[in-house]
Design a protein around this nucleic acid. Structure first.
Lengths: 241, 241
DNA sequence: AATGTGTCAGTGGACGGACCAATCTGCCGC
DNA sequence: GCGGCAGATTGGTCCGTCCACTGACACATT
């Protein structure tokens, strides 16, 4: 039983620590704090922001985990990078308006990963893909959409690409991608078509044919995002230079 | 003056909240917690983990910011996704051993973004690139390495690609990339060569020639990563299937 | 004078308890 | 059976306290 999670939040919801993250971001900008420079002490920050040290420390923990600051015990809080202070991928991704960008990013990453997978895949990787496909087929035969298998298959391909960085990035996009997948698979006959597309991808990867793998993946993704509403007109280049 | 940040950390240093993030990850795995399911109450978690609620809440804040959990006031803590629980990009990136993967990811993203930039760049984008290049040239003429201009130029290209998601991802890799850039530019004559490479990229983007932009960027990056030590032998595909 | 050493103020790390606010649950009266 | 109220649950925030690490300065030693 899925718990209804995101929608219909209380409205004015305000995570104090989230506000603090933003405030600290502003602080960096407005004081023109340089990379490597030190923040005021926690106690002072807390006082000036009018919050408790506990709340402030939640915000600092987030920023540190994000890599924006470094907190040195006994030393102080230091700025590590200012670009994109605040801002987390998953938040960026969860905006409906970003769908075209997400799809664009997805295609880029996933096609390349399929290409890499064709060259680097190990025996266990292939096994994962096959079993994911089998699960998907079983589910589809039973009248399901095969989402679990679909997801597992793509994940297996990602792993087979042997690049943790790219894999991590794609996983970050996973949520938004998952929505797309649902919309697509909900159309009649889609599950079947999708299954076939996956077979072609697997076949190419098995034959270590990276070019074919890339193309098969690209075709598959295009098919999926076609359904996913809005075709996107990229802003035209202006030649006013 | 850059503060020496990463190397030679105190050894046993241990961020309690970081450990907690991992522990919670283990908890999700071991109890096979499903997406949407609820965690035990904070107080109970804190007790069972043997830490204060304050520390636990730092960990929860990180996990929530990361999008792994959702915390509902008065409701409880819920699992949003389990894939890659814990694990943050910038941590992944900061491992020396990952350099090849980072470079691979960088090339993929940056080449594509250059390609997009050639089609989507606006007048202000071009202006940013030109001024970055000018700054770089001035610095190089003065005997500097031109790192600031270099960085600004790439950033301008990223922005011109008009895809916030990709831009965000690249910015996440920025730190590691920056190191690479330093190593590369430190070699004799490099700054000059790099400047030329950037000119070619800009020229292609100005002419809205996406193919040439992509190639110019690729060549530039290859040149840079050549210097960056270790050529990488990707793991060979095993044909034992 | 140069160097080593001890001390101490400053700063982050963690805790426990208290109280508020949103939510959930179940009982009670209609 | 249904609506609503009240108490229990659970997260949100704060405060004060104490510990641990760092860095700088004063002082002693050579």
């Amino acid at each position: 039983m899925r718990v209804d999670t995101s929608p219909l939040r209380p409205l004015g919801r305000t995570r104090l620590y989230e506000d603090l993250v933003e405030r600290l971001g502003e602080f960096v900008i407005r004081t023109n704090l340089e990379v490597g420079a030190r923040f005021p002490p926690e106690r002072e920050l807390a006082t000036r922001l009018g919050v408790s040290r506990a709340s402030l420390r939640q915000a600092l923990a987030v920023l540190e985990a994000q890599g924006f600051i470094e907190v040195r015990h006994g030393g102080g809080v230091f700025l590590r990078r200012s670009r994109g202070f605040g801002g987390v991928l998953h938040k960026l991704v969860e905006r409906r308006a970003r769908l075209p960008e997400v799809l664009e990013a997805r295609e880029l990453l996933e096609v390349r990963l399929a290409e890499l997978a064709a060259t680097r895949r190990s025996a266990p990787d292939l096994a994962s893909m096959r079993s994911a496909l089998a699960a998907m087929e079983a589910d589809v035969d039973a009248g399901g959409l095969g989402v679990a298998g679909d997801s597992a298959f793509h994940h297996a391909v990602h792993r087979a690409g042997k690049n943790k960085v790219l894999e991590h990035v794609i996983d970050g996009l996973a949520e938004a991608i998952h929505e797309t997948r649902l919309e697509s698979l909900s159309e009649p006959n889609r599950p079947r078509a999708s299954l076939e597309a996956h077979r072609r991808i697997l076949d190419a990867i098995e034959s270590t044919d990276s070019g074919r793998a890339a193309e098969a993946m690209r075709a598959h993704l295009r098919q999926v995002s076609d359904v996913a509403l809005l075709r996107w007109e990229p802003p035209l280049a202006s030649d006013d230079d």
